[in-house]
């Protein structure tokens, strides 16, 4: 298996040579590096095939011109090297014009939607994650208490999480139908999926319903790691419930909370299923993922550029989170590693 060469080569260096990985108390066994490389190789090879290769091929594609009929002129456009044209096209919203050159993309065309899709993606991300954090925290605080039926509640909370997002979308599509139960309960006559803001709220509500449990469970796990005697001590010292929450619960649960938020943010930024099925991206609910999928039918290379931009945006958000908020994603790793990610 020639593919294993890369990790094996890396691992065969004597372990002691690596700076920052010493002194964590684990016993070194001679030849362990080679075993480790063998164990890890299949995973890395698979990931290289299913992720690295597509990324590289997307970048290569994104530098090529889409061949085909120009929608504006009806003339056949040759493919070929395009430099960064595909990128500037999206970022500056400039479309190819008759006889070369560029003009601002026509309103409503895919090319004109990049910044609005970016805005909507961030809007959905911020609103849903904020709501999920608040509700998730509340749910976690309730679930952390001791009461009869806690097991039932924890089971119930897993139900929205287990339902496939596509089914969730169809379910809320039905709930938000004009004659549906939402309008009936609240005595409203809103075209939920048919106009801009109701459609956005429908998506937000469905997303919050589906993913708050995940958030709540992560926060709950963080809560349960706080030793009870800390609270007892604070109580004895006369701290009120609110003071205990702000000065004990929040700081101690913060590492778990930030990781949970990071996971949810990155997940929300690639949101596709809910808006695609609930509204089809209509009425100002086109997220970046929907825009990419729509562009695929109109030109691979331009879509590849857009998906690369999307990938970079998500990567930057993750980077900012880890760098500035100290999201300690790999908390249990070696001490040297911890220092690096902080």
């Amino acid at each position: 298996m020639a593919v294993q060469a890369v990790p094996v080569g890396d691992a065969e260096k004597p372990p002691g040579e690596k700076p920052g990985s010493s002194g964590n108390g684990k016993r070194r066994i001679p030849g362990q590096g080679r075993w480790a490389a063998l164990f890890i190789a299949p995973t890395l090879v698979l990931l290289a095939v299913v992720i690295l290769y597509p990324i590289i091929s997307a970048i290569v594609m994104s530098l090529q011109q889409d061949a085909g009929l120009d929608p504006a002129t009806g003339l056949f456009v040759e493919g070929g090297f395009a430099g960064l044209n595909n990128y500037t096209q999206w970022l500056l919203q400039q479309c190819a014009a008759v006889g070369g050159g560029t003009v601002p993309c026509a309103p409503g065309s895919l090319g004109a939607q990049f910044w609005s899709a970016t805005g909507i993606t961030f809007f959905f991300t911020i609103v849903t994650v904020a709501l999920e954090t608040v509700f998730g925290f509340w749910m976690a605080l309730i679930m952390a208490r001791a009461f009869k039926g806690r097991g039932i509640l924890r089971g119930a909370v897993l139900v929205p999480w287990a339902i496939p997002t596509a089914v969730t979308a169809k379910l809320w599509f039905f709930i938000f139908a004009f004659n549906g139960v939402a309008n009936n309960l609240f005595n409203t006559t809103i075209l939920w999926t048919g106009s801009e803001w109701p459609a956005r709220f429908a998506i937000i509500i469905a997303d919050v319903w589906k993913t708050t449990p995940f958030m709540a469970l992560l926060i709950l796990a963080g809560l349960q790691m706080i030793p009870g005697d800390v609270y007892e001590a604070a109580k004895v010292d006369g701290a009120s419930a609110w003071q205990r929450f702000v000065h004990i619960t929040l700081p101690l649960v913060k590492p778990a909370l930030i990781v949970a938020i990071l996971f949810r943010v990155l997940d929300a930024m690639r949101m596709y299923d809910l808006p695609a099925i609930l509204t089809g991206g209509a009425n100002g609910t086109t997220t970046l993922s929907i825009l990419v999928v729509e562009q695929i039918r109109q030109g691979f290379n331009s879509a590849a550029a857009l998906s690369t931009i999307t990938f970079i945006i998500i990567f930057l958000v993750a980077f900012i989170f880890i760098k500035f908020l100290g999201a300690n994603v790999a908390a249990d790793s070696t001490s040297g590693g911890k220092a690096k990610i902080k």
Partner: peptide
């Protein structure tokens, strides 16, 4: 954390 949508285009082609 990789966005699935970044895979769709190259894999589609």
């Amino acid at each position: 954390m990789f966005p699935g949508v970044a895979l769709v285009t190259p894999l589609f082609q």
